[in-house]
């Protein structure tokens, strides 16, 4: 048996709906026989017709409704059709869900699924990675699963958490990644994972860039260069301890993220390592992000805009010579 990253997300939701009557799925095209733009909810409305609900194209009201339901005891899962469109729900996510517990002492257990990241030909408005925006604001947990197993267990964990979770699932991984079976339980939320051990250089990354980085580590191993790959799993909270421990072993840090370059998760990792572990570094840390332009449509431009294995390998080799 072989399960894709996308099927794991669907299976997690099926399990959540079966196990917990408080769970409902709310979003555009998630219900009926359609099952979502990417089929992440396919078949679920048949089994749970009253808890898998189509909505109008109203991102603000979708999240607002989920917040109200969560305050009153439900565990909504919101599907944004694309992460990009969550920008029209920013107010409800940041100013309402993100502030509610702090202001009122009542937590808001919503999970917002964001189909994130670039795929060929998707262009500026169907390709964005939004994790750094959500991580910047207080009151939200931001998950960025990079494996089939994590896609499954982290979504189940997200719904169990009493606080708002922004769950960034990567569209590029939907069909590419496969696993033999789904685990019952994963690492605890907030714990980074050593995806590959190595002693020469640490790559800290998350989401689809974990797979790119692992490919690079494999390639460089043939040149006797040992790359350690740390998969953050959640960008907030950020597991600084695991990152520092890895840098202590390797002395070199390369951070890779797919989002835009100004600020963001990679900058945060470097800020923490340089301020808390400056003495561990043998060379200045390096980071790789997408370019500071909107995400291009044409594959020739897109593949140069997005960080990929080739660029990661080049930067890693250069950093190893420092």
């Amino acid at each position: 048996m072989s399960i894709t990253y996308l099927e794991a997300i669907r299976e997690a939701q099926a399990r959540l709906l079966r196990d917990d009557e408080r769970v409902f799925i709310y979003g555009q095209d998630v219900g009926g026989t359609f099952g979502g733009a990417f089929k992440a909810t396919k078949g679920l409305a048949k089994e749970f017709p009253n808890r898998v609900l189509n909505t109008p194209i109203s991102e603000d009201a979708i999240v607002g409704t989920a917040i109200g339901a969560a305050i009153k005891g439900m565990r909504p899962i919101v599907e944004m059709q694309f992460a990009d469109f969550s920008s029209t729900a920013l107010n409800q996510i940041l100013n309402h869900a993100g502030t509610h517990y702090w202001r009122t002492n009542i937590p808001v257990p919503i999970t917002i699924r964001l189909p994130s990241g670039g795929t060929k030909g998707s262009g500026p408005f169907h390709s964005q990675s939004m994790e750094s925006i959500y991580a910047h604001y207080p009151g939200l947990i931001v998950m960025t699963p990079a494996t089939v197993e994590d896609a499954y267990t982290m979504l189940i964990d997200a719904v169990a958490i009493d606080d708002p979770v922004v769950y960034c699932e990567h569209k590029y991984l939907y069909y590419h990644l496969k696993a033999d079976k789904l685990p019952d339980k994963g690492l605890p939320t907030g714990r980074a994972r050593i995806a590959r051990e190595g002693r020469d250089l640490t790559i800290v990354t998350y989401s689809a860039m974990v797979q790119e980085s692992l490919a690079v580590a494999g390639e460089l191993a043939r040149e006797n260069l040992e790359i350690e790959v740390v998969d953050l799993r959640t960008v907030k909270p950020l597991d600084t301890d695991t990152v520092l421990a890895s840098v202590a072993r390797t002395g070199r840090l390369l951070c890779v993220g797919e989002s835009f370059p100004w600020g963001g998760a990679t900058a945060e990792v470097i800020a923490r390592v340089t301020s808390e572990g400056f003495h561990l570094l043998d060379a200045a840390p390096v980071r790789i992000n997408a370019k500071d332009t909107p995400i291009p449509y044409h594959p020739n431009l897109w593949s140069a805009h997005r960080p990929g294995a080739k660029m990661i390998a080049a930067k890693a080799r250069a950093l190893l010579k420092e």
């Binding site: 603000d60 979708i62 607002g64 409704t65 109200g68 969560a70 305050i71 439900m74 909504p76």
Partner: peptide, 20 residues
């Protein structure tokens, strides 16, 4: 919250929870 209009859908959600 200060952002006007935001409370309408939140009220809707609270009512949906009661219906559920």
């Amino acid at each position: 919250i200060s952002h006007l209009g935001a409370m309408v859908s939140v009220t809707v959600g609270a009512l949906l929870a009661k219906r559920f």
